[in-house]
Design a protein around this nucleic acid. Structure first.
Lengths: 352, 352
DNA sequence: ATCGTGTTTGGTAGCGCTACCATTGCCGAC
DNA sequence: GTCGGCAATGGTAGCGCTACCAAACACGAT
């Protein structure tokens, strides 16, 4: 009967304007419209204007799926970070975002939750979309993941730390040296029983610990009992917990290097609660230099890490590589800065 | 000469296995492979097994661009949040992520940086990809953005707060009531000169302020000089700055409601530095109940907000709507919980 | 005038997948 | 036995875009 079939054998269409619509309105070929959007400099000014008018009149938006399918390349930069809760990575993302303003490229974050398995899975998801670039955290990818990165067919930047054998490019700083710097500072100010507190001991944390250990051994002060770590996630309350554990093991602690600032905050509060004055009884140092550190009372010594710059320059490296410009150096060390504050300074030294 | 042209007139191909490769290896049609991956229950167990084997042997990965192009639907949920630095949204994202484990769907975040213009731009980017669902923060979208959402052609969940006229669905809690609850608590404990500190006054902050103001007016205590706000971003140091401003305007302050916990931390440190004891001289309350609040010294009263649950349930609502199940109620109020701690409790009351 | 070179534009054939049918086989109902 | 209905499977025509050519044209060199 065919009575109900109004749209009998209708061809599906999203209803949105397509390149062909723009092309016919502008009186040009579809490919010229595509070029005008993608490489404006290859199209004459006159056609560019006509096309631009047609695009605006129709409200045309390029279909990224069709584009990616046809060119086997998506205008997407995949960014893999182990945590979003962690303010450290939030700053990196801010740098990436600001480096991408006025660019056709889009960022696509994913959170590996510190899991190698999850990292590999997410990387496969990214790769299936033919990204234009990849930014991954750390340098300790397992072989399978590393191999995926090497065959990604796009620029890859490893961020946060530096080391030998970059997959492609690398930007960060030495966590080992950072750990050394804090420990050395405390040694220099006369501390001997310097504890180390660490949570969520990822590879970067281990390298900071190694830096601390090197300095302690060189000073003849190392004692395994001074190190208190956990694989549990880092948090402020965990800082307090680890501090109490450490104090029980080594009651003669005179300073603490914390693997990050959250832990340091926890120690600060625990000390306030236990009436152990900082820095008089315990010197305290963190890592990363979150904004809170210089505001705290007492203000807390920390290692300022160039998180924003890492993001900003990582994206610049990707864009340069996409344009065919290989960087002069594949490995960029942005360094760090030890911010010495009240928490590791004698009261009498503090007077300026 | 054509000597260099080895791949003369070669057809482009990504080199990856395609559905057709899988189909021929499994001895079935391409469409059956597509179905086996997309709707396994519609394919017989035998073919499913053969196809699964072929997929594994070839290492086949579905091309999401081709899939989205052909079906005008991408397996992507777009999530728009105003900030990533803010721990508040990090928890929401964690909820969304955990709600999506074992799902084919992917999340795609974007950060609007509290900008309506940026929000609209990002929304257009999302829409161009034909997302399967959208999660947006807040309920105050400007008309153009709202219209985009209404015509998105997919489930939309507005999160973080609730109000009338949802675009589609809504989940959150009342910031107005939250603001009222803190203020009322302080009134109840005898405070009269209760200040309000706010930074980055987004619509939700304004509603908390309105809640505070209502309570203050009802108690006959409202004084515009007690309110100190800024449009600048919120931070711990900003908390200290606002506190100093407030103390100058109204030196007789006996309590402070902070628009969020970062500010409250800043006030805490500023008070410690100025030797103004909390709660004896100043009572202090925050908003959101970040982990730090219960660890601080003194521990800080705050309004615990169901951030994780918001994310978790928002994604569940999207998935249900995708399956055609309309929720029994389009608006879900998850409430909040006032956590009363040392910072608003008299010393003598604290003894239990 | 002829040629080469470079610039601008367009035609067309896919990219890999899924919507839309059509086909087949099987079963119970009449 | 024939038929209708359902379930399982497949053929094919796009989805909207861009890579790959080719054509048209301008311009200076020969």
């Amino acid at each position: 009967m065919d009575t109900a079939g109004v749209k009998n054998r209708a061809r599906r269409s999203s209803g949105r304007p397509t390149l062909a619509d723009v092309a016919s309105r502008a009186g040009v070929g579809t490919i010229t419209v595509s070029r005008a959007l993608r490489h404006p400099e290859r199209v004459s000014a006159e056609l560019r204007a006509r096309i631009s008018t047609a695009v605006n009149e129709l409200g045309y938006v390029l279909n990224p799926n069709a584009s990616a399918l046809a060119s086997a390349r998506a205008d997407v930069i995949g960014v893999l970070v182990p945590s979003l809760t962690n303010n450290v990575f939030a700053e990196v993302l801010r740098g990436i975002h600001e480096g991408l303003i006025d660019s056709r490229l889009q960022i696509q974050f994913a959170n590996t939750h510190y899991s190698d398995v999850e990292e590999e899975r997410l990387l496969r998801v990214f790769l299936s979309q033919y990204p234009s670039g990849l930014i991954v955290s750390g340098i300790d990818q397992p072989p399978a993941t590393r191999s995926l990165l090497e065959n990604a067919g796009c620029p890859v930047v490893q961020i946060m730390e530096i080391g030998p054998n970059p997959v492609d490019m690398m930007i960060g700083f030495s966590h080992f040296e950072g750990g050394k710097a804090v420990a050395q500072h405390l040694i220099d100010t006369g501390c001997r029983r310097i504890g180390f507190l660490g949570a969520r001991m990822d590879p970067r944390s281990h390298r900071r610990l190694a830096g601390y250990q090197t300095v302690m051994e060189d000073a003849g002060c190392f004692d395994a009992a001074l190190v208190t770590t956990t694989t549990m996630p880092s948090s402020v309350s965990m800082g307090g917990d680890l501090f109490r554990q450490a104090l029980e093991k080594t009651p003669d602690l005179d300073a603490l290097v914390c693997n990050n600032d959250d832990l340091a905050m926890g120690v600060l509060f625990a000390c306030q609660r236990a009436c152990l004055p900082i820095p008089e009884r315990i010197r305290l140092a963190g890592f990363n230099d979150l904004e809170m550190m210089h505001v705290a009372y007492p203000s807390i010594t920390s290692v300022r890490t160039p998180r924003y710059q890492i993001g900003r320059q990582a994206i610049a490296m990707v864009q340069a590589a996409m344009a065919g410009e290989r960087p002069s150096q594949a490995i960029v060390d942005l360094g760090f800065e030890l911010k010495i504050r009240e928490s590791t300074t004698q009261k009498d030294q503090r007077k300026s």
